[in-house]
Each structure stands twice: as structure tokens, then as C-alpha cells.
């Protein structure tokens, strides 16, 4: 190709380079960026943790609290957590400028208070989850603060009494 021909093509095409830091990036509507958890909506049920392929989301109980941690550095941006969230607390944003100089800056945490079993005192569910469950299906108060193990024991005791077992 002659120089004149190349020049003609170049002039027809014009500039193709994106001036990225000085102009907005090209983001398609389908683009999935980092996930954002709304702490006012999240129950701490752990559905997102179960579905997350690379375990970027983790729910760790420690003492009186359970921490839902989101590590962007391991996220594969599949958006499955947002799909599965029953509270619609997870939102897929278009954020991609996530670079950081330390790994700690890539973590975001939502801290949940844990409710305790009224009989044995073991931590059961998060308080937010209990509130939501009670709101959607009112259960007797003596039930919802009892852990599954104690519930089973209580049921077994009641059934034995019904069958005529001794009271001692």
C-alpha cells in the first residue's frame, strides 16, 4: 500500500484511541463489576456464601458476632450472590477501579449480632434473620429463641410424657 493510501484510510478513520483516565470508560449494560452489600437489608443467612464459587464471600461466627466478609481480590464477578440473595441486599455495581496497595483494602465486612438459644445459650442465628422470619411467619415466642438441638430434646421429652413415661 502506498503512503497516500494509508494516509487516506487514517484520515477517514480518525482517532480510535480511548483517552481513558481523562474520559469515562466504555461500560456495556451487561458489565458486572464489584458487588455491594447493603448492611440495612442483609440478614446474614449465608445463601451467598454457599453459592460463591471462589469463596470470596465468607460468613464467620466469632463470639457474639458473625462477620460477612467480601474479598474483592478473589471475586470472579459472576453475580450469583445477587441472584440468590433472598433479601435483595446484594447489588452488582459497575465499579472496576478497585486497585489497592494492600490486601486489607480489598475487604469489606458486614457485622451481624448473633442471637443465643434461651435454653443452652449456644449462638444460633443472626438477630436480623430472626426478625425477618418472625415478621413473615409469626411463631410462638418460646420457639424462635430455641436452637434445633434443644427443640429436638424438648419434643422428645414431651412425646415420652404423652406415652406415659415417668415424670422423674
Amino acid at each position: 500500500m502506498s503512503v497516500a493510501k494509508i494516509l487516506e484510510i487514517a484520515l477517514r478513520t480518525g482517532r480510535v484511541t480511548r483517552r481513558y483516565p481523562y474520559e469515562p470508560p466504555l461500560l456495556t449494560p451487561e458489565f458486572r463489576g464489584a458487588v455491594k452489600i447493603d448492611p440495612s437489608k442483609c440478614w446474614g443467612c449465608g445463601a451467598c456464601v454457599k453459592v460463591c464459587p471462589p469463596n470470596a464471600l465468607t460468613l464467620k461466627p466469632a463470639g457474639k458476632e458473625a462477620t460477612l466478609e467480601y474479598f474483592v481480590g478473589r471475586c470472579v464477578f459472576c453475580g450469583m450472590c445477587a441472584e440468590v440473595c433472598p433479601a435483595k441486599a446484594i447489588e452488582v455495581t459497575k465499579e472496576f477501579e478497585l486497585s489497592a496497595t494492600s490486601l486489607e483494602d480489598l475487604k469489606s465486612r458486614v457485622i451481624h449480632r448473633l442471637a443465643r438459644c434461651s435454653i443452652c445459650g449456644a449462638p444460633i442465628w443472626t438477630e436480623a434473620e430472626l426478625r425477618t422470619v418472625v415478621k413473615s411467619s409469626p411463631i410462638a415466642e418460646e420457639y424462635y429463641l430455641v436452637c434445633p438441638k434443644c427443640r429436638k430434646e424438648r419434643f422428645a421429652k414431651a412425646a415420652m410424657l404423652r406415652l406415659g413415661a415417668g415424670s422423674e
Binding site: 448492611p39 442483609c42 486497585s99 483494602d105 469489606s108 465486612r109 457485622i111
Partner: peptide
């Protein structure tokens, strides 16, 4: 740097 460590207590 835009991203930084976030720690929020649920409502």
C-alpha cells in the same frame, strides 16, 4: 486509591 477497607454493623 479509591477502594478502602469497609466495616459496617448490620442495622
Amino acid at each position: 486509591q479509591k477502594s478502602k477497607r469497609v466495616e459496617v454493623v448490620a442495622s
